[in-house]
Simulated assay, not measured.
Amino acid sequence: MHMNVAPHLLTEDRAEFERVLDEALRTAHDRPELAELGDRFTTVQLREMALNATALITTAAAVEYDHYVKVREQLRSASVTGGGGTGEALGEAGGAGVVAIVTVLAPILAGTAAVLLLLVGAVLKMLDPPPAFADTLLTAGLMFGAVAAAGLLCAAVGLLVTALRNSATQVPAGTPDDELSRARRAWGRALTDRGILPFLRDALAAPAPAPLPKQTPPSGRIPKVGYSGPDFTSPADGPPPARPTFTSPDFTSPDFGPPEHRTE
């Protein structure tokens, strides 16, 4: 479904407009003046009517919408202007990430090496006679244990410093993001109170369309058309037609003809 967008309503805000419209339709029955909407129109019909009247509805909240768009554009401009600082911050974060990885891996590797060296040195010391490098393994194990302990201490200090740094750079309340949320909510309230709800009240107050006149069906199965067929009668119904009369020619014998035609 494509709705008619008001000239000042941006395409990216159509979804928010539809969300506010759906919420208003969902809670319309909670309002006494709109309790009879379901008796005359369905929710789908009301939604279609409101989408077709988007220009009228959004004009009622034009002031709040303009403020919302202005705050959003200011926030976007500020983020674009601070792009260089963001890149530097990402670089610093990448370097800090490498240091954090090394700080975490060093105690693990050192501790593993210390456990292995101490275990092997202790086993060799149990032999009779013990090898000469058993004491060397034990000494190396103790050294790796000290390195692991130092790494754990550095990791704990790094976590503490990171926590303090994040707490210092937290975004306090009243930032542009919070102002943008307030502007969006104000626009939604204005749409509902001054645009959508008055539109629904007008739809409820509009007179119902007059019903179409009831047509009486014809009495017969086949409707009678406006002309009649020609009358055909059989020959027996009328007087017999006059028969033509024929007269034979007069033939006379040669004796009764004129004298010039008599034979000798």
Results as ranks from 00 to 15, higher is better:
residue 2 H to L: 13
residue 2 H to P: 08
residue 4 N to P: 08
residue 5 V to I: 06
residue 6 A to C: 02
residue 10 L to V: 14
residue 11 T to V: 14
residue 14 R to K: 12
residue 19 R to T: 06
residue 22 D to K: 12
residue 24 A to R: 06
residue 25 L to F: 01
residue 28 A to Y: 05
residue 34 L to G: 00
residue 41 F to H: 13
residue 42 T to F: 02
residue 42 T to G: 05
residue 43 T to M: 13
residue 44 V to I: 15
residue 48 E to Q: 08
residue 49 M to P: 09
residue 50 A to G: 00
residue 51 L to S: 01
residue 52 N to E: 10
residue 52 N to K: 15
residue 54 T to G: 07
residue 54 T to D: 02
residue 57 I to Y: 01
residue 59 T to H: 05
residue 59 T to C: 13
residue 61 A to D: 03
residue 62 A to V: 09
residue 62 A to M: 12
residue 66 D to F: 08
residue 70 K to S: 09
residue 71 V to C: 11
residue 73 E to Y: 06
residue 73 E to S: 07
residue 76 R to G: 07
residue 81 T to P: 10
residue 81 T to I: 15
residue 84 G to T: 13
residue 87 G to E: 15
residue 89 A to N: 12
residue 90 L to M: 10
residue 91 G to T: 05
residue 97 G to L: 07
residue 106 A to N: 11
residue 107 P to A: 02
residue 108 I to D: 01
residue 110 A to Q: 04
residue 114 A to H: 01
residue 118 L to Q: 02
residue 119 L to R: 14
residue 119 L to P: 12
residue 124 L to F: 02
residue 125 K to T: 01
residue 126 M to V: 08
residue 130 P to V: 00
residue 131 P to Q: 00
residue 134 A to L: 01
residue 143 M to V: 15
residue 143 M to Q: 06
residue 146 A to C: 11
residue 148 A to N: 02
residue 150 A to R: 10
residue 155 A to V: 06
residue 155 A to R: 11
residue 158 G to T: 15
residue 158 G to L: 13
residue 160 L to V: 07
residue 160 L to S: 05
residue 163 A to H: 12
residue 168 A to T: 12
residue 169 T to Y: 06
residue 169 T to L: 15
residue 171 V to F: 02
residue 175 T to K: 03
residue 176 P to D: 00
residue 177 D to V: 15
residue 178 D to I: 04
residue 178 D to R: 07
residue 179 E to T: 04
residue 183 A to Q: 03
residue 186 A to F: 00
residue 186 A to K: 06
residue 188 G to T: 07
residue 189 R to C: 12
residue 189 R to G: 09
residue 192 T to V: 09
residue 194 R to S: 14
residue 196 I to T: 00
residue 202 D to Q: 09
residue 204 L to W: 00
residue 205 A to D: 03
residue 206 A to Y: 02
residue 207 P to C: 01
residue 208 A to S: 10
residue 209 P to K: 04
residue 210 A to Y: 15
residue 211 P to V: 04
residue 211 P to C: 00
residue 212 L to N: 06
residue 213 P to S: 03
residue 218 P to W: 03
residue 222 I to G: 11
residue 223 P to R: 13
residue 227 Y to D: 11
residue 228 S to D: 08
residue 235 P to N: 08
residue 237 D to V: 12
residue 239 P to E: 06
residue 242 A to R: 10
residue 249 P to V: 01
residue 249 P to C: 05
residue 250 D to V: 15
residue 250 D to G: 07
residue 252 T to C: 04
residue 255 D to Y: 14
residue 256 F to T: 10
residue 257 G to E: 15
residue 260 E to C: 04
residue 261 H to A: 12
residue 262 R to E: 13
residue 263 T to I: 14
residue 264 E to D: 11
residue 264 E to K: 12
